[in-house]
Computed example of a mutant assay.
Amino acid sequence: MLSLALIIILSYLLGAVPFSLVVARIKGINLREHGSGNAGATNALRVMGKGPGLAVFALDFAKGLVAVVLISQVRVGGETLVGILGSRPDLADAWAATIAGASAMLGHVVTLWGRVFFESWKGGKGVATGAGMLAGLAPIPIALAAALFVVVVWATRYVSLGSILGAISLPITLLALHFGLDVRNPPPVWIFAIVVPAFIVWTHRANVKRLLNGTESRFGSKA
């Protein structure tokens, strides 16, 4: 139980590092006062340009991936998670990785470090960190989702629309791989391939309203 608690805490604290705000402060910018005011990679890209914006995306993506691949392996005194998270080592490991990624994603959205150093709990919308999490759990679906994201943004210049459609594609791709190629994934991957896209759609609910009424900002528009 101690190992699981440590995995959750470490993953959350890593996910809570608000890289967009850190990079912006280094450049002498208060990101919350520019663009959409959101502490995510999209607003960082809009306000600070491609270099800093892509760096923020890569760092946020890495938070989810590191939590899944590395932090989920943390054990205290050789403690096993079998019995706590499953009856088999592979299932317990899959749950540990998924819980670690979800904790990092929660930290990204509700950030302790943001509250301590930037006076607000509000972080980003979870797209980059969620993508990093799912890249560690289901690399093929996330690669296809990324391709769809690029196509949608290229065609429409709506980053929010690309994020939403890319997220929604994840469970659809898992189903296609399962029934078409007999690619099997453990239950935690299925659960979070549904929960994470739903969460991303929820964090983009204001964007959805703006998309529907035609007021959403397009990529490349003036911050």
Rank of each mutant, 00 (worst) to 15 (best):
V82N: 12
P141D: 00
I84S: 14
A41D: 03
V66S: 01
A41P: 02
F117L: 14
R75E: 01
A67N: 06
L59W: 09
K125D: 04
A96E: 11
G126I: 08
F118N: 03
W121P: 08
A100P: 07
M133Q: 11
G124H: 08
F149Y: 15
F61C: 01
L144H: 02
S87E: 14
F118V: 01
V66T: 11
A94F: 06
K125H: 05
V127A: 12
L81S: 09
N43P: 04
W95Q: 05
L65G: 01
T42Q: 03
G107W: 10
A143V: 12
R88G: 02
L54V: 15
R115H: 11
E119Q: 14
T111C: 01
L148E: 04
A128L: 13
N43W: 14
V109R: 08
A102N: 03
G136A: 09
A145H: 07
T111R: 02
W121Q: 05
L91Y: 10
A131R: 01
I84V: 15
A92T: 09
H108V: 07
R115L: 13
W121T: 04
A96G: 09
A104W: 09
P141Q: 00
E119C: 00
A55H: 00
A44V: 06
S87K: 14
V68D: 11
V47M: 12
R88P: 01
K63V: 07
M133V: 06
V127W: 01
V76L: 15
A138F: 00
R46P: 02
A131Y: 09
A97K: 15
A138S: 07
